[in-house]
């Protein structure tokens, strides 16, 4: 059983599609239903997806070059950082989270600590000036109550 990636992805997508069909069957139907209704199209699309996945499982392509474990780790770290950024942007303002996340991402791409810190600080300040004063977006720079 070589070429596992396509098969695993196909199997996972079949599960997603089946859950999708199951929840499509639960859609509330309006009393003013048209001949097709709100269920048919989602169910149809998900069924086509299942067929595609079966083909993927039966005839998988060559295995892609997956990164080594260490790189997967740094990709996971950046995902966590970006999720954290999404939560931090409102309470902490723009400058501090941006400096941290941009610096960390820069370090992940090219591991040079000093350059990464400078990139973080520079991007944070530069983009803030660009967004706030040139493009006039409503950004909050600092955590509330600092100034």
């Amino acid at each position: 059983m070589a070429r596992l990636s396509d098969r695993i992805f196909g199997l996972a997508m079949i599960c997603v599609a089946l859950v999708y069909i199951a929840s499509a069957l639960q859609i509330q139907v309006s009393f003013l239903a048209d001949p097709v209704g709100s269920k048919a199209f989602p169910i149809g699309v998900a069924s086509v997806a299942v067929i595609c996945c079966v083909v993927m499982i039966l005839r998988p392509d060559e295995e892609p070059d997956w990164p080594v474990l260490w790189t997967v780790g740094s990709i996971l770290i950046s995902i966590v950082l970006l999720v954290g950024y999404a939560y931090a942007l409102r309470p902490l303002g723009f400058l501090i989270p941006t400096a941290i996340v941009a610096g960390a991402l820069s370090y992940q791409i090219t591991p040079k600590p000093v350059a990464a810190v400078l990139t973080g600080l520079g991007l944070s300040a530069g983009l803030f000036v660009l967004f706030k004063f040139i493009l006039d977006l409503g950004l909050v720079g600092f955590p509330r109550g600092w100034f």
Partner: peptide, 16 residues
């Protein structure tokens, strides 16, 4: 421009 500056910049611009 090195990607270590460019890519974080693009990501931050997209997020904002």
């Amino acid at each position: 421009v090195p990607p270590a500056i460019l890519l974080p910049g693009v990501t931050m611009i997209s997020f904002v």
